[in-house]
């Protein structure tokens, strides 16, 4: 294996990509920022002196992805078709997970863009919160997956167990130490949604028409670390809620959670059952029993 950014004399050079064929490229990167529990609580409540922390960090990450070529010397300037930056708040270990997805149809990979988005989103989180907490640390910035291109697909091994991203602390009436994570360990790598649009041009409307748009709400969202995911309608073996659960589980085994008896579901915002029929373009929400009033 050789380093593509060095020429035969060992000098840095930019790879000529003019003759490479255009393929659909996607990369997902993640990172994490640890903070004091009080800082996280303040962040969650929107009590930071500089304002809406996550919205600002998201825009910063997206902007950074677009400007990667200005920061990393030998990177090409790319016309990204999609950049998304998402956050998961982990109350169990007082941290925020940042995940960035970049996509384009082009001749070079987009992992540097995804990694830059995560880095700058983390730095912005630091900047937005540093007035109340200077001990924050940024760590684990890494590529989770990349697809497309000559070098082939890459998927970081999911075997590494990290502390639960789920925040569902279950109060235990019999113990003084009521703060216990309900699920123990949970994989918190983000779920790659790229499969949905393989080979298609990233025009939002076209994508959504052929997909089931799935939402995970409240406690379920935090346990899964996923709020929205598109599932191609063709991935469903049968066009029902049951079929959708199977397709999701196929994509990531964490979705087995949806099989829990207590998890409810709504199709196009109407309460539904396991055998409710689905059509492409439907919105399906999964959520725990309601606790309003």
């Amino acid at each position: 294996m050789s380093l593509t950014h060095l020429n035969s004399r060992g000098e840095a050079h930019m790879v000529d990509v003019a003759d490479k064929t255009e393929t659909r490229r996607e990369a997902v990167a993640s990172g994490r920022i640890h903070m004091r529990p009080q800082t996280l609580a303040l962040l969650a409540e929107g009590g930071m002196p500089k304002g809406d922390v996550l919205a600002t960090a998201r825009i910063a990450g997206i902007q950074a992805a677009k400007r990667t070529s200005e920061l990393i010397p030998l990177c090409h300037a790319l016309a990204l078709s999609k950049v998304s930056v998402d956050f998961t708040l982990n109350e169990a270990d007082a941290s925020v997970d940042v995940t960035a997805t970049c996509r384009l149809n082009g001749r070079t990979g987009v992992e540097m863009e995804a990694l830059t988005a995560v880095s700058v989103a983390c730095l912005t989180l630091y900047d937005m919160c540093k007035a109340v907490d200077k001990d924050m640390s940024i760590e684990g910035i890494q590529l989770l997956s990349k697809t497309g291109g000559k070098s082939g697909d890459y998927q970081r091994s999911l075997n590494v167990k990290r502390p639960a991203g789920a925040s569902s602390m279950q109060p235990d009436a019999t113990s003084e130490n009521a703060v216990v994570s309900k699920n123990g360990l949970l994989d918190i790598a983000p779920i790659v949604t790229g499969k949905c649009f393989e080979g298609s041009v990233s025009v939002a409307l076209g994508e959504e028409r052929n997909c089931i748009s799935v939402k995970c709400l409240a406690e379920l969202r935090e346990r899964l670390g996923v709020s929205d995911i598109n599932v191609p309608f063709t991935a469903l073996l049968e066009p029902t809620i049951g079929g959708l659960k199977s397709a999701l589980e196929q994509q990531d085994k964490r979705f087995a959670l949806l099989r829990e008896q207590r998890i409810l579901c709504a199709v196009n915002q109407v309460m539904s059952a396991e055998d409710t029929l689905l059509t492409a373009g439907d919105e399906v929400a999964f959520f725990p029993p309601v606790t309003g009033g």
């Binding site: 925040s167 109060p171 606790t291």
Partner: peptide
């Protein structure tokens, strides 16, 4: 002592 989702009754 922390945050938690209220469970159904």
């Amino acid at each position: 002592k922390g945050h938690y989702w209220v469970s159904e009754r």
